[in-house]
């Protein structure tokens, strides 16, 4: 079959968004390779080269822990997201790893019905392409704003 990273990334990302928005968070770590990086930061921190994240994980197990903490430990009001993703833009492709950038808009819907723009930004990704599937080796979630409303529980 012909290798088509754009299609595979677009498919993976559409699936990723559905997984989170449909509250199937247990499936979310599976979009990543076992050894991976997932970080949520801000455009300002990225510009200044500041390395810390709001969330930082360097293994898929850390992502699983994030989900089980949300399910079992952390207290927050019931809420859900609606991810609206742009088209992936392929930045580079060395035949195995593909770097891409995708803009996102996330609406947060809370119990009383408020649906507000919670985050906008872009994913800076490294995908491993193989066997008709794209897996995330790295996803840096770069929020445009440095301000997070109330808390960040569900991943972006």
């Amino acid at each position: 079959m012909s290798r088509d990273p754009f299609r595979l990334i677009a498919k993976a990302q559409a699936d990723y968004a559905r997984c989170i928005d449909d509250d199937r968070l247990e499936g979310w770590p599976d979009f990543f390779a076992e050894s991976c990086v997932y970080k949520i930061t801000t455009a300002e921190n990225l510009r200044e080269g500041l390395e810390a994240g709001i969330i930082f994980a360097n293994s898929r197990d850390m992502l699983r822990d994030r989900v089980s903490a949300l399910r079992e430990a952390n207290i927050y009001e019931r809420q859900s997201y609606r991810h609206i993703l742009g088209q992936p833009y392929i930045l580079s492709d060395d035949g195995a790893l593909v770097r891409s950038e995708t803009s996102f808009l996330v609406i947060r819907i809370v119990q009383d019905g408020d649906a507000v723009i919670y985050a906008t930004g872009r994913y800076l990704d490294v995908y491993a392409i193989g066997n008709d599937v794209a897996k995330l080796n790295e996803r840096i979630v770069v929020c445009d704003s440095a301000r997070i409303d109330t808390l960040l529980a569900i991943p972006l």
């Binding site: 949520i40 390395e51 810390a52 994240g53 709001i54 969330i55 930082f56 994980a57 360097n58 850390m62 903490a69 430990a73 952390n74 207290i75 927050y76 997070i148 109330t150 808390l151 960040l152 529980a153």
Partner: peptide, 16 residues
């Protein structure tokens, strides 16, 4: 960097 997961807006022990 890993322990920063404990704190901040998404912190395991500060989210609440």
């Amino acid at each position: 960097l890993k322990q920063c997961n404990l704190v901040g807006p998404a912190g395991y022990i500060s989210m609440e």
